[in-house]
Nucleic acid binder design. Sequence first.
DNA 1: AAGTGGTCTAGACCACTAT
DNA 2: TAGTGGTCTAGACCACTTT
Lengths: 249, 249
Amino acid sequence: MKENPSAAIDRRSYEPAYAQLVNILRRQIATGVFRPGDRLPSESQLCQRYQVSPMTVRRVINILVEQGVVIAEQGRGTFVKPLELGTAAFHLDDLQRLFRDEAYTTVKLLEARITSASERTARKLDIEVGQRTVFIRRLISQGETPVLYHREHLVYDPTRPIIEAEMEVTALRGLFNGGAKSTIKRGDLTIDVTVLTKEEAQLLQSTIAVAAFRVEHIFYDFDDRPVSWGWFISPGDRLRFTTTVGIRD
Amino acid sequence: MKENPSAAIDRRSYEPAYAQLVNILRRQIATGVFRPGDRLPSESQLCQRYQVSPMTVRRVINILVEQGVVIAEQGRGTFVKPLELGTAAFHLDDLQRLFRDEAYTTVKLLEARITSASERTARKLDIEVGQRTVFIRRLISQGETPVLYHREHLVYDPTRPIIEAEMEVTALRGLFNGGAKSTIKRGDLTIDVTVLTKEEAQLLQSTIAVAAFRVEHIFYDFDDRPVSWGWFISPGDRLRFTTTVGIRD
DNA sequence: AAGTGGTCTAGACCACTAT
DNA sequence: TAGTGGTCTAGACCACTTT
């Protein structure tokens, strides 16, 4: 059988050989040349057919495995993976887009004051009840429409000068776009749903009891101590997450 | 300066060299040896220091880049990436876990009947209004607690025998765990929030107007024709998504 | 025993960035 | 020009599965 000339690797292309082969195989899977459960040609066969070295084929297979398109089984072969809902992931970069357009996105500092930790705050921040914390409220709007309401409790540590910086309204933008404080090592996020309280509805120019996303966060410093606990709230009609499972071509 | 003996690659270990080096570098980043913005040792330096070939170091760097821990810039170096909220993703495998425990999870078929497409259904499934569709309602419970309510509209195509199979209550489990119908190529998912209607609250043994997740889906066959449109609804107090950004060690 | 995927080597060449 | 990351080769050896 003669090969399809379009399914060959162009060595003059700027697209590297491994990327071309990934796309070739993806397309073949997407168009049904290989169906879920089918075995792909063995790696040595792929080497011959596309005139690339074993290492390059290996890399291609690895990428397809990471993409969730195929599953490789040692000694048996590489098989096309059936659709699996569990692999779906929703990315917060929908949220990130909010902060990308600096012109249309404004962050308004509603409140920033020193207070003492409540029982709940103390537990989240792993400090003593009554210890000093900084409480911050922000409202993030896109154009005229408020989209996010942010409440945050920060550990007050005079030896660490992050507080002044954290209050900066631009700090939030940095958090989303990557210019984050280097004092923060990681963050744990939880997404759940609530209905807007009266205060939240008022601020967000929405209606009370409307369904809303709630993204809770705890940020940790490099000593794994919590430094910030808080949450974002966004009415459901202003935020949405989408994704695709299976083979997108 | 002498090297830390614990930060060396054990060639006798079952853990491959590349994985060991990934963990070594991750740990060094997590413990602050390298801070956000810092440049990692060059690839040739890493080769010498850990006694591995360039190809292996290359692979390690690639993995760290994919994990979002570092960013590699050609001609400049590889740098530790600051925390970025936009990279956060929450995975539906929280949902998948529901279906893993077959003993505790039950899928109850509430209704399955042939009907004709409404204007909205027709638009979603890209068919004519009034064309025949199959409407299915399911209730997924964990133990005694209902967790998910599923509504689905399927294109009725007598030439395709998927309908009988789709109605099977086990089909859903397959969708989540990977044994999916090989007739499905991909699915588009959207997650947003609503409040429970009276009917939904009744079925889910919850209260009306409680906040809930709503996962809408459209599944496509290998000809990119929509075959199924529907959505899952789950009260917010029974489902939750978590994730970590930054360096988790 | 034969075939499969998995790891790894020791180089080569290229493109890019800094000086 | 020197140093960096990026791609690629042509093998080697191993672990595993199937026959």
